[in-house]
Design a binder for these strands. Structure first.
Lengths: 340, 340
DNA sequence: CTGTTAGCGCATTCAC
DNA sequence: GTGAATGCGCTAACAG
C-alpha cells in the first residue's frame, strides 16, 4: 500500500496524498477528508525508510554498549531510549562485547543505517593515552559528521560530546570514608582493564596517599575478561579468598564494581569472615541488589542514571543545533549502608 | 558519498560500482580493482536504507518487550539480538510498558520501519479469552504479513508462531515440591494481572487440589502495576507482612516471580520470621540474584533463556521459509536451594 | 488548490 | 564487460 495506490483510489495525485499525510496547508477540506478516509480504510502507514531517503534524515540513533546484561547499562539504555523516543527517534541498541573489532563493526553498521546520532556508554569507547588511536580514527572516518555523546569516556573529536562520572574523585573519597570508619588496612579489588577502572584505581592510590600516607597500598586485580553479572560475581568471590591470603591483615576491601563487591561478600562469608566486623566491603555503582543483601552494601553511586539522562538531552540538543557543553562532569555520592 | 561519486572518480558508471560492491560476476579484474580501491580510499559505506527500498527488504527485526529493566527480559533480548545479528539482522528493541495504547503505537512504529520480523516477549502480548481482541486485530492489520514469534503468549494468527514456558505445570509441581518438604499451609503471592500470572495462579490451585486437597488455598494479590525490579521487590516486601497478618498459620509462600520472592524474604526478615524455618519462600524465574541472597532462593526456572534462543531460531526459520512448528512448549525445572 | 516533474541512493533489466 | 534507463516510496519545487 503506497501513496500511489491511495492516490488512484481517491482520484488525485500522489503529492496531494503526501500533503494530507503530512498535514500541509493548501488543500481543500473536501479532498483532505476524502483522502483521509481512504488512508484509514486501507490502514495505510508511510514507509519512514523511503521518507528518510528523500528527507535525508532517518530519525534513528544508535546506542553502543558493551553488554546490555549489566544492570547499570540496562538502566542507562532504558532511560536514553525513553527520552529519545519522546522526541521521535528510534534507537538501535548494540551490545559490542569487549573486542575492538566488534565495536568497529558496529560503528560501520550504524553508518550504513545512516543514524543521526550515537550514544556510547562506557569508558571503553573513549581514548586513553596508551591506545594506538585506531578507534578514534575509525569513528572520525565513519561517523565524523554524526553527533556523538560519550558516557563515561572521552574522545577528542569535533562531533563528540562527553559526560563523565567523577569516579576517580569518588574512589578517593571512598578511601577517606573508610578511614573515617576506623579502617587501617584498605585494599583494592579490581578486574578488567578499562579506562574507568584505571581511574578508580588511581583514585584509590591518591586517596591512600592523601588520607593515610603511612598505610601500605594493597591492590589485587582479578583475572578474567567478561563483565556480565554472573562472571563478575564469580570473580569477586574467588578474589576475596585470594586477597585474604595475600593481605591477611586487610580490614576493608574497596571493589571497583558492586557486582564484584557482591561476589566479594560471598567469598568472605565462604571463609567465615564477618562483614563489616572483620572486613568492610564497599562497591561502586549503587546497583539495586546492593540493598537486598545481608548486610546491605555500602557503595559509591556513580550517578549513571543521571549521566544517561543528560547524555540523551545533550544529543537532542546537538541534533537541534543547540550546542550543548562539550564536557560535563557529574559528582558521585557515597551511599552509606551496612557493609562498611 | 554515493555510488555516483565513486563512479565519476573511477570513470565508470554507477551500475559498475554497484556490481563490484555486491561482488557480482562479469566485471574485468582491472576495473574491479580500480573501483575497489576508490571505495576504500573514500571510506564508502552503502546506504542500507536505500538498498532496502529497492530490494524490498530492511534486514531489520523488531523486539517488543514490556520493560527491558526486568533482568529476565534483558537476558532474553541479549540472546535474541546476538542470534539475529549473526544472521545479518539489526534489531529495534522497544520497551512498551504496560499500556495497550503504547503497545499499539509500537506495532505501528515497527510497521513504518518495514521490519521483516517481530519477536514479542511476555504474556501481555498474547490474547486471552477475556480480551476484546483489539490487540490481535491491530497486529493482524498492521503486521498481518510479517512473521512474528511470541514468547510466553499465544496469538491465533496465520503469521504468528508461539513458544511458551509451561509455567502452569511448573507451579503445580512447585506446590508438590513444597508439600514433599513437609509444608502444611502453602499460600500464594502474585501481583500484576498478566496472562502468565493467571496461569501460575491456576497452577497453584490445581497443585493444591491434586496434592493437598484438604489444605485451604490462600491467595494474596499485591496491589500495584509497575513491574520494574525496584517496585516488584518493594511490593513483595509489603505483601509478606500483609500475608502474615491474613494467614498467620502459613508456612510457605510461593511467589509469582523471583523479584517478588526476594522482596518477600526481606519483608519476612523485617518481622523476625526465619526462612525457611518458620516460612519457606519460593519464586519463579531463576534470576541470578536468587543465588546471592542469604538464604539462597529456591525457584522455578521457567527456561526463558532457552525460550528466547528458540524464538530467534524460529523467526529465522520463518524468515527463510523453513516453516517451523507453530507452537512449542518448554518444560520448567525446580532449582532447589535453601529458602524452601 | 492541485498535478507534473525531479530526485533521494541504490540494484536491476536490457541494450550495446 | 559495461552503460543507460527504470523504479523502489516518498517529498518538494514549480507550474498552472
Amino acid at each position: 500500500m503506497t501513496i500511489y495506490d491511495i492516490a488512484k483510489q481517491a482520484g488525485v495525485s500522489a503529492s496531494t496524498v503526501s500533503r494530507v499525510i503530512n498535514r500541509k496547508p493548501g488543500i481543500s477540506e473536501a479532498t483532505r477528508r476524502k483522502v483521509q478516509k481512504l488512508l484509514e480504510e486501507n490502514n495505510y502507514t508511510p514507509d519512514v525508510t523511503a521518507r528518510g531517503l528523500v528527507m535525508q534524515s532517518s530519525w534513528t540513533v544508535g546506542i553502543l554498549i558493551e553488554d546490555i546484561r549489566v544492570s547499570l547499562h540496562t538502566d542507562s539504555v532504558y532511560i536514553i531510549e525513553q527520552e529519545l523516543m519522546e522526541h521521535g527517534y528510534t534507537c538501535i541498541t548494540l551490545s559490542t562485547g569487549r573486542s575492538l573489532e566488534k565495536k568497529l563493526d558496529f560503528i560501520r553498521l550504524l553508518e550504513q543505517r545512516r543514524v543521526e546520532g550515537v550514544i556510547m556508554i562506557g569508558s571503553m569507547f573513549g581514548e586513553e593515552e596508551n591506545t594506538d588511536g585506531r578507534f578514534r580514527r575509525e569513528v572520525a572516518s565513519h561517523l565524523g559528521t554524526t553527533p556523538i555523546v560519550l558516557v563515561n569516556g572521552e574522545l577528542k573529536l569535533p562531533n563528540v560530546w562527553c559526560i563523565i562520572s567523577d569516579e576517580e574523585r569518588g574512589t578517593e573519597e571512598s578511601v577517606a570514608y573508610l578511614i573515617r570508619k576506623q579502617r587501617k588496612r584498605i585494599s583494592y579489588l579490581t578486574d578488567v582493564d578499562t579506562p574507568s577502572n584505571h581511574l578508580k584505581r588511581r583514585g584509590y592510590f591518591s586517596g591512600c596517599m592523601k588520607y593515610a600516607p603511612d598505610m601500605p597500598t594493597q591492590l589485587y586485580q582479578a583475572p578474567g575478561s567478561d563483565t556480565n553479572p554472573t562472571d563478575s560475581v564469580a570473580r569477586g568471590r574467588e578474589a576475596a579468598k585470594e586477597m585474604c591470603r595475600l593481605f591477611p591483615d586487610t580490614d576493608a576491601i574497596l571493589c571497583s564494581t558492586d557486582m564484584m563487591a557482591i561476589g566479594c561478600m560471598q567469598g568472605l562469608k565462604d571463609i567465615g569472615k564477618n562483614i563489616p566486623g572483620d572486613i568492610a566491603v564497599m562497591g561502586v555503582d549503587n546497583a539495586l541488589f546492593g540493598q537486598l543483601l545481608q548486610p546491605t552494601l555500602t557503595t559509591l553511586d556513580n550517578k549513571m542514571s543521571e549521566c544517561s539522562r543528560n547524555a540523551a538531552r545533550m544529543l537532542l540538543d546537538a541534533l537541534d543545533g543547540r550546542e550543548p557543553s562539550r564536557k560535563i562532569i557529574i559528582p558521585t555520592e557515597i551511599i552509606e549502608r551496612d557493609s562498611a
